[in-house]
Amino acid sequence: MKCDKAELLISAYLDGELTASDWSQVERHLSGCSRCAATLALFQKNTAAFKQTLTQRAPESDLWAGIAVRLDDAPIPKSGLDLRSAWRTFWQGFVVAPTPAIRFVQGGLVAAALLLLILRPQFQAPTPDTTIAPQTDLIPASPIPSADKQKFMQASLTSQVEDYLERAGMLLMEINNSGDELDASDVPGLRTTSQSLLEETIVVKKQLAQTQSKELSYTVDQLEMLLFDMANLNDKPQNDEFNQLRAMVIQQDLVIKIEIYDARQLRQETRMKPSEDETRI
């Protein structure tokens, strides 16, 4: 067992997440490796410090009082924001009642909407009966609440990139940590994830081109090359082949770079501010 594997297992052991047989392997390694023995001692010490110091607390005030007041004006919607239907509604707003709809939407939103129209292939093109031949007598030309539109625009601009980065981060972690352990049974999963991320990359890159994120754009370029190789991985990749990919992840610090660009960072770089009310669930 190599030291990096041993350290990972030592950490899991301290959280009670290791089987006895795994632990006996680690113990064998520890008996001959003073560096890992020191790591164990250090990890043990700081784990105990965290657990003993950051103990369970109770809130000082009655939280329910503040919650109950707000529930009174909190109707329960049938479902959360459905992007697909929001998109359809939004689109109908354009087709059916262009003038009031556009009045609601500021120039930037219109441009972004058009951009999204082009960039979001997974949004099914609006169905013909509502768009290509708009039949105003069948579709009520009610104005679309501008809040819905705003919500939709924000949700789609940030959440797709956020979601992409989160999944890319996880994939990279997985590659980073699989080490010489890569199991042939993991390959199909890695390949599928890489393929779907690769398909989204072009969309994400175009969205990023609208922001100031030069560093992130560069990182995504590097990621794209990796995804391409991952998506084309053989069923039984040679160790060399996979290790080269892994080396790229590590050398380029891709995990850390992606992790830096979390939601907060991205929000500031996209020009649209999220509403206070937005959740990412």
Binding site: L63, I67, A74, P75, P77, G80
Partner: peptide
């Protein structure tokens, strides 16, 4: 934030 969490949870329980 904890209060906010529960208000959101209530509002979104149907999701």
């Amino acid at each position: 934030v904890t209060q906010e969490v529960f208000v959101k949870a209530y509002r979104k329980i149907n999701s």
